[in-house]
């Protein structure tokens, strides 16, 4: 008897509850502006959604041109948006990053932006953040756990584009040895894994290309320098070397220079377009550089933060990605203005 009453009640409750939800939803809908409202009202609406919101940003480290530039641009954008930007610098230490993100999730910012060291480190924390209703944006190196938005390079595309260039200049009919060396970053980083995949797929289309060395230099120019010196010794007729980051590939370019092979061994790199990248293209040390434009990425990151906050959607209710547009910097189209200098005022 009692059971029956319960069942009837719950049957009634369900439509009632959904009705209430619908009504609430409708209310939220009407709270937004109609098309005919004034721009002052629009501004008021946007301000009401952004004002006093906290955006937390955890890069792998500050101190590299790339991360300093992002942070610089993000601060400018945050000021314009009227949100509060909190920066935590784990100084290239994975444990410190894990701790920082865990602590931030507990303090519940409105948006959490992370730059993953590798595909696994933060996976659990990102899920926890999403469950706690925090929007999560991942930058340039994505985790195994995907969140509201990814902003950064499409690494497979980057690898493929360089691969196609290498096929064009070292492949069939080029008269070269077809020998290519690859300098990877950290083996477990998404940027490294996906660039390698895109590159190897592209060069596999031409059987005359041989990858004679493919080793990890852990984003370190000195390691890239030593590896390249050894490879040049074994393969003096090397046609090209491709490094997954300009700052690291700088070391490989210096090894090519020390061996007196500038121009003969074509040095390719991808990167954010810092001043040194442009200098290397201009001096001929880099044959071609694929730029994914750090300052633009900084802007895109904050635009996504703004977008998520204004949308009012539930955290984790979408999986979006915004891929940076890559462009080649070569000696022919060289323009120093394409590259950036980190503004002197230090990122704090």
């Amino acid at each position: 008897m009692l059971k029956k009453t319960f069942r009837t009640l719950s049957m009634l409750a369900l439509p009632l509850a959904s009705g209430a939800l619908l009504a609430l939803g409708a209310q939220a809908q009407t709270a937004d502006l109609a098309g005919g409202n004034s721009s002052a009202e629009l501004k008021q609406l946007v301000t009401s959604k952004l004002k006093g919101k906290t955006v937390a940003w955890v890069p792998t480290t500050l101190g590299f041109p790339l991360t300093d530039m992002w942070t610089h641009v993000m601060k400018q954008e945050a000021e314009q948006m009227g949100v509060n930007l909190v920066v935590r610098d784990p100084a290239f230490n994975t444990t410190a990053q894990l701790d920082a993100v865990t602590a931030l999730v507990a303090s519940k910012p409105d948006v959490l932006i992370v730059h993953n060291f590798n595909v696994q480190l933060l996976a659990k924390q990102l899920k926890a953040a999403e469950d706690a209703g925090i929007y999560v944006i991942q930058v340039n190196m994505v985790s195994n756990y995907k969140t509201d938005a990814y902003v950064g390079a499409d690494w497979e595309q980057i690898g493929r584009m360089v691969g196609e260039e290498v096929v064009a200049s070292c492949g069939k009919g080029s008269g070269s040895s077809g020998k290519v060396a690859v300098i990877q970053g950290q083996l477990t980083s998404a940027a490294s894994i996906e660039q390698l995949k895109g590159f190897t797929t592209a060069v596999a289309k031409d059987p005359s290309i041989k990858i004679v060395s493919s080793q990890a230099a852990d984003w370190d120019a000195t390691k890239a320098n030593n590896l390249t010196t050894s490879v040049l010794q074994q393969h003096p007729d090397l046609c090209a070397t491709f490094g997954f980051w300009g700052t690291m590939q700088d070391g490989a370019a210096q090894a090519v220079k020390a061996a007196g092979k500038v121009g003969k061994v074509k040095v390719y790199a991808s990167g954010e377009g810092s001043r040194q990248d442009c200098n290397n293209v201009n001096s001929g040390l880099f044959h071609k550089f694929l730029n994914y434009n750090g300052p633009n990425q900084g802007r895109a990151i904050m635009q996504q933060a703004s977008n998520l906050l204004q949308s009012g959607r539930k955290a984790g209710s979408a999986r979006m990605a915004f891929y940076s547009t890559p462009s080649w910097i070569t000696k022919d189209n060289f323009d120093p203005a394409v590259c950036f200098d980190v503004p002197k005022a230090k990122a704090k």
Binding site: T61, G63, A91, F92, N93, D218, D220, A221, T222, A224, N225, T247, D250, G251, Q254, A258, Q276
Partner: peptide
């Protein structure tokens, strides 16, 4: 010697 080889110094080497 390391700086002259790569023409840069990456102080990040301390965490290697």
């Amino acid at each position: 010697v390391a700086a002259a080889s790569t023409s840069n110094v990456n102080t990040q080497v301390i965490s290697s």
